[in-house]
Amino acid sequence: MAKYLSALLCGIVFGLGLCVSQMINPQKVLGFLDVAGAWDPSLALVMAGALAVAGTSRLVILHRAKPVLEAEFQLPKATHIDTPLIAGAALFGIGWGLSGFCPGPALSALSLGIPEAYVFTGAMLAGMWLFQILQSPK
């Protein structure tokens, strides 16, 4: 039970961060990506704040033998730079640039009852599902 409550808390804190930083607003995000328009550097400071906290705290956290509520840390093992990584990031970037939505803000915006967020999130889930179908072993 505790591990579900902690995950819930982390989701809330993450979502509040998206609200406070206004990254939940696609036009705010596009203001950063549009270097030819009225450029808004805010997104860079959001990343700087997040990286400062996440980067320094992980040095302390990973000294532990295991996380507080689980048996082990589950960290990404992949280190290679390959075609799927670059192609996937490039495709994601096209969708992000067209909409201003990446997965976190799109999900958070669902509770505000914005129809566009539902359309985007539905299509995003379909895209993820499509990948699972095409990539899963036959």
């Binding site: 994601f92 096209i94 939505f101 990446c102 985007f120 299509a123 895209g127 993820m128 499509l130």
Partner: peptide, 8 residues
């Protein structure tokens, strides 16, 4: 955009 973000 959603399809591209999900697949990408």
């Amino acid at each position: 955009a959603g399809l591209l973000v999900g697949y990408g």
